[in-house]
Amino acid sequence: MKRRFDLPTFLVGAAAAAVLAFIYLPMVVVVVYSFNPDAVNVFPMRGFSLRWYRIMLEDEQLIGALRISLLVALGGTSIGLLLGVPGAIALARHDFPGKRILERIVLLPLTLPGIVTGVAMLSFFPLIGVPVSLLAVLIGHGTFLIAITLTQVYARLRRLDPSLEEASADLGAPPITTFFKVVLPNIKTAIIGSALLSFTLSLDEIPVTFFLIAGDNTLPIQIWAMMRRGISPEVNAISTLVFAGSIGLILLGTALGGRDKE
């Protein structure tokens, strides 16, 4: 099929390109200006330098915040996997009283504004002896990551034919064997995908963390604090690393856990 120049298609294409540019240009600007030799981000940029990366690596508060974020993300993702995967199996394969309610509750941390969840946790956690602290942040992250893992794994289980498991049981395999030999291999990629997604979301989380954090900032909160103090290309440098890290995790996630699109 040969195609000649076609004005309407060209216009739609131009609009599409403009929107794509709108989405990506700001991120490109941040990355480009992380190599800025000057302290102010002005156009045109005068030269190229790794100065701000060096300053970033020597910023102990920032590196400390990165470490805390990685720990919280690791802990939160583990909580999400340990409780979300069994929850998904229960919801997808069993009937029990209160199932409908549980299905709706699981969606709450994903649909309600983070700030509402944040202030609710802030109001309640101290009453059960969990003051604002990293522990509170960890519980907060774990809670919404359970929802992430559960919904992702549940979606995969719904597409998996239950007769496979019935066949396994009919052939005499105990439930544990059926789980490890039949169910797990089929939901493995969904679990890996949701773990990577959970990790990325936890590293980026602000609304809940903001209300539960005490002294030790997580990375996004620390970046926010730096931004409020004034603009420094050091923020561009750490932002570039954050971009690279999250894009890496997402691509890994879609490569491993993907093939969900039909």
């Binding site: 602000i206 996004p220 931004m227 954050v242």
Partner: peptide
């Protein structure tokens, strides 16, 4: 999923 805070920045 790419950093909210960085895009606002």
């Amino acid at each position: 999923w790419v950093s909210y805070i960085v895009r606002a920045y």
